[in-house]
Computed example of a mutant assay.
Amino acid sequence: MQLNFDKEIAGRSVSLKLGFVTDPLGSRRAYNDPAVALMRAAQSHGHEVFAIQTPSLSWRRPEPGHAGGVFGEVLQMHLRPDDHDWYREVAREWRPLRFLDAVLVCIDPPADAEFFTATWLLERAEADGLRVFNRPRALREHSEKIATAEFAQFTPTTLITRHLRQLREFIDSERDVILKPVDGGEKVRVFRVHRNDRNRNAIAEALTDDGRRTIIAQRYLPEIDQGDKRILLIAGKVVPWCLARIPRAGETRGSLAAGGTGVAQELSPRDREIAETLAPQLLKRGLLLVGLDVIGDYLTGINVSHPGGMVELRQQSGFDAAGATISAIERVCGLT
Rank of each mutant, 00 (worst) to 15 (best):
V239L: 05
S58V: 09
E312G: 06
G185A: 12
A206Y: 04
W120Q: 06
R219T: 15
E144C: 03
L16E: 04
S317M: 01
N196T: 11
L3N: 09
R29E: 15
M1P: 03
L18R: 05
R135S: 09
Q153P: 00
R162V: 00
G308C: 13
N199K: 12
D271F: 10
D101S: 13
R270C: 11
A235G: 15
F133G: 01
R98V: 12
R314P: 07
Y298Q: 10
T117Y: 07
G68I: 12
R80T: 11
L287P: 02
Q226V: 02
D172L: 14
I216T: 01
A67S: 14
L335H: 08
D23M: 10
G286P: 03
L289I: 09
N134P: 03
G46L: 04
G301F: 01
D101M: 10
G46R: 02
R200C: 06
T252Q: 12
D82Y: 04
E273A: 15
V190H: 03
A149S: 13
F170M: 10
N196R: 10
Q226T: 04
L164T: 15
E223Y: 00
D197N: 10
D33A: 11
L207F: 14
A51G: 02
L299R: 05
E330V: 04
T325D: 07
E276H: 09
W59L: 10
T336D: 12
I160E: 02
V193L: 11
A275K: 09
A138V: 01
G227F: 08
D112T: 05
R195Y: 07
G318D: 06
R272Q: 13
L164W: 08
D82R: 03
S268Q: 07
D228A: 13
S58H: 14
K237S: 13
F116Y: 13
G318M: 08
I178C: 00
V105L: 11
P62I: 06
A10P: 02
A113V: 13
F319S: 02
M39S: 03
L179K: 02
F99V: 11
R230H: 09
R168C: 04
S44P: 01
L167G: 15
V294E: 02
R245F: 08
W86F: 15
N32H: 08
E169W: 04
R135P: 01
Y87W: 13
K187F: 05
I215S: 07
T161D: 02
L221E: 00
T277H: 14
V190A: 08
I329M: 03
G227W: 09
T261Y: 03
R270M: 14
R162A: 06
D228M: 11
F20P: 07
G323K: 12
G309N: 12
P280H: 00
R189S: 13
G211R: 11
L282Q: 05
I326S: 04
N4Q: 12
G129F: 05
G65I: 10
W86G: 08
R124I: 06
A10T: 09
I107T: 08
D225S: 14
I224E: 03
T252N: 14
F99P: 00
D23P: 04
N303Y: 06
R192H: 10
T119I: 05
Y87G: 02
A275T: 12
P34N: 10
T325A: 15
I329A: 03
M39A: 07
V290M: 11
G211C: 12
G72Q: 09
